[in-house]
Design a binder for these strands. Structure first.
Length: 271
DNA sequence: AAGCTCCTCAACCGCGGTCAT
DNA sequence: TATGACCGCGGTTGAGGAGCT
């Protein structure tokens, strides 16, 4: 299959996005949507490759993205979902509204993975003469919401905060989830699909993104079957390829119906 | 206070899948 | 059917901040 040549780097900017670039991109997408990925940066007047723009939008600028520290519920969900799905971050993200695969991946590698391997860590602790801050690994270092104030994060967050604070009310999030449920974990493109779902739905409220408890219990207790009950399941090539989420969910269902896992795992996030 | 080490996370890379022509 | 382009994914990297000595 033909593959897009990696965006020619000539003259194209790389690295952290500036506030201006973010503004430009958001404004452009708000006005015309993100149609042609490659043409987008040109149309918007950005010296970035289309891929970079898409990534920036999907992972950080979308209004429905939730920022800040992960709650205990979210972390538990990630752990449980990871037990089921493995490193299918997008599939996990599909079940954690407002979170991106990248975020989840980072949290997993930085916190949760270590938390699940306490014994190993302790051994390392002893081996490394207590120099490493393992406690901080198990219990993340103090970080105010949103993590550290990086230079790039200022750029990343500030331009967005209007829109992001904008962002999503609970209602919006819920509708996003139902949209995700419709498209279903069956696309495997959670971020993308929700992005497209949300694409035209900017509002200009200025509430902070908040998901209340009932939302979580509603969302996380939603049986996977329901989420993925879209169309026939055709388990071809389910392994070894980046199969669709439908394929993955087929195996998930097989796994669950077969009682292949322990009960706790199967009892998905009932928070 | 300064230097060092470790941690975090945004961004990039490269691949496969899918769609349009 | 072949080709080109777009899209999304998972893995990796590196800058910069935080904590420790």
């Amino acid at each position: 299959m033909g593959r897009a040549p990696c965006c020619e780097k000539m003259g194209l900017k790389r690295g952290p996005w500036t506030q201006e670039e973010d503004k430009t991109l958001v404004a452009h997408i708000q006005s015309v949507g993100h149609g042609n990925g490659r043409a987008l940066p040109k149309q918007a007047g950005l010296l970035r490759c289309g891929k970079s723009c898409r990534l920036r939008w999907i992972k950080y600028l979308r209004p429905d993205i939730k920022r800040g520290n992960f709650s205990d519920e979210e972390e538990q969900s990630i752990i449980q979902l990871h037990q089921l799905l493995g490193n299918r971050w997008s599939a996990i993200a599909a079940r954690l509204p407002g979170r991106t695969d990248n975020e989840i991946k980072n949290v997993w590698h930085t916190h949760l993975k270590k938390r699940l391997e306490p014994s190993e860590q302790e051994q390392h602790d002893q081996a490394s003469a207590g120099k490493k801050r393992k406690a901080a690994a198990a219990v993340p270092r103090k970080r105010e919401s949103g993590g550290k104030a990086r230079k790039t994060e200022v750029a990343a967050t500030e331009p967005v905060s209007p829109e992001r604070s904008v962002s999503s009310t609970v209602t919006e999030s819920t509708s996003m989830v139902s949209a995700a449920a419709e498209h279903g974990g069956n696309s495997g493109n959670s971020a993308g699909s929700s992005a497209s779902v949300k694409e035209e739905s900017f509002t200009s409220e200025s509430e902070d993104f908040q998901i209340d408890e009932s939302f979580w219990s509603e969302t996380l207790s939603m049986p996977l079957d329901d989420i993925n009950d879209v169309g026939p399941m055709e388990p071809q090539d389910a392994f070894g390829s980046k199969s669709s989420d439908g394929d993955m969910d087929y195996w998930l269902r097989v796994f669950m119906e077969g009682g292949g896992g322990d009960e706790d795992v199967l009892d998905l996030p009932q928070i």
